[in-house]
Design a protein around this nucleic acid. Structure first.
Length: 366
DNA sequence: CGGTTTTGACCAGCGC
DNA sequence: GCGCTGGTCAAAACCG
């Protein structure tokens, strides 16, 4: 325990306690964008302040993720953009890639934010379901391959000249804590120092058997307050109903409710944003007042075709947008009591350790 | 005692 | 070929 405390209190050893909280007095905002990563992957970024919408909320993918969100071009390194919605589950990406789809071109996406989201989503409902099915098969194959290699202990002596990589998604989260719990359980299997960064990168793997999803967590060297979480792969198992440390907001009427664990009560666990593959029951459209996002053109994102959006927790403000639609499809359906809580704070607050939260200015006082 | 984290070593890919 | 870097492994330590 002493060691832990030491780690927490020493920024050199841990990223958890990055300076004092500054996010609390910032305007709740989520910024999104796309860019090429050094690895040649197209990543989606979503910046999020804790003060507003829950990152978790944002990452609660709709049951029917838009198929036209992200294209990953591993061969040419160019961003294929995308749409105005939050990052699709890796499954959607991989499926599109495997199908050779040209995923939505960048064409004026950032300016057509509020258009056609609903019908598009409706139209792709079944499409996505079918796609996921095929995808899951592929993923199972991938998992098999992975298991083969992992079970071979070290040095599996790769046979594939080119190792195929799962689609990756990166989220940039403005947060003091590195691991934002997404309900999944992760086991850390490595940590490496990152070149040109004072902060190490940690490697995590989903603890579910046969689930090959990996997650990398690192802090931005440019902005230490930003945590970069990168997901690779797709979960092959249902969303955990009662993730470790769940605070207990488990709506009765949702199959995948209560998702947030209460801040890593000890070691382990952690979590973060996750990828979302598994076929899920269609959830009801409700509680949409909790997050009412609005979009705006973003000049800060690296890609001209990128977009950004901000969120506000003010339920009286409604900005029709595809993102809003996305949010309406969130699986998380809090109970009324939880609703009142969440309306003011956003779900991520539940992730933030209490000792951190209690220092935050109360948003509802705005 | 089982699960998780830590951490040094190993391996592969890439650029020079 | 060599060195650098990212990614992974696995034994040991840690923790509840």
């Amino acid at each position: 325990m002493d060691k832990k405390e030491e780690l927490k209190n020493n920024p050199e050893n841990s990223n958890i306690n990055m300076a004092n909280s500054t996010f609390s007095d910032q305007i709740p905002a989520v910024y999104g964008g796309f860019f090429d990563t050094p690895q040649g992957y197209l990543d989606m970024l979503a910046f999020q302040d804790y003060g507003g919408a829950s990152l978790f909320d944002l990452l609660q993918q709709p049951t029917d993720p838009p198929p036209n969100l992200v294209a990953e071009d591993q061969h040419h390194n160019h961003p294929t953009v995308l749409s105005n919605r939050l990052p699709p589950p890796p499954s959607a990406v991989s499926a599109a890639a495997e199908a050779g789809e040209t995923v939505n071109t960048p064409t004026q996406n950032s300016s057509s934010i509020s258009s056609s989201s609903n019908e598009a989503a409706n139209n792709v409902d079944q499409e996505n379901i079918n796609r996921r099915s095929a995808q899951e098969e592929d993923i199972e194959d991938d998992i098999d391959d992975q298991e083969k290699t992992t079970n071979k202990q070290l040095k599996p002596k790769k046979k594939n000249p080119k190792k195929q990589r799962e689609p990756r998604f990166a989220f940039m989260t403005k947060s003091e804590i590195d691991h934002l719990d997404d309900g999944y359980r992760w086991r850390k299997y490595g940590q490496k120092a990152v070149k040109n960064s004072p902060f190490p990168r940690s490697y995590h793997r989903c603890t579910s058997v046969a689930c090959g999803v990996k997650k990398r967590v690192e802090r931005s060297s440019e902005d230490p307050s930003i945590v970069i979480t990168t997901y690779e792969g797709t979960h092959t198992h249902p969303y955990p109903m009662t993730p470790r440390g769940t605070i207990g907001i488990l709506p009765e009427n949702t199959a995948y409710g209560g998702l947030i664990s209460g801040g890593n009560g000890g070691s382990g666990g952690g979590g973060g944003v996750s990828s979302f593959l598994f076929t899920q029951p269609h959830y009801q459209q409700q509680q949409q007042q909790q997050l009412q996002p609005y979009f705006h053109n973003n000049q800060t994102t690296p890609s001209s075709s990128s977009l950004s959006f901000s969120t506000t927790t003010n339920p009286s403000v409604h900005h029709p947008s595809s993102f809003s639609h996305f949010l309406q499809e969130r699986r998380f359906c809090p109970s009324p009591s939880a609703n009142s809580l969440l309306r003011d704070h956003g779900l991520l607050q539940d992730v933030v350790p209490f000792q951190i939260r209690k220092d935050e200015p109360k948003e509802e006082e705005n």
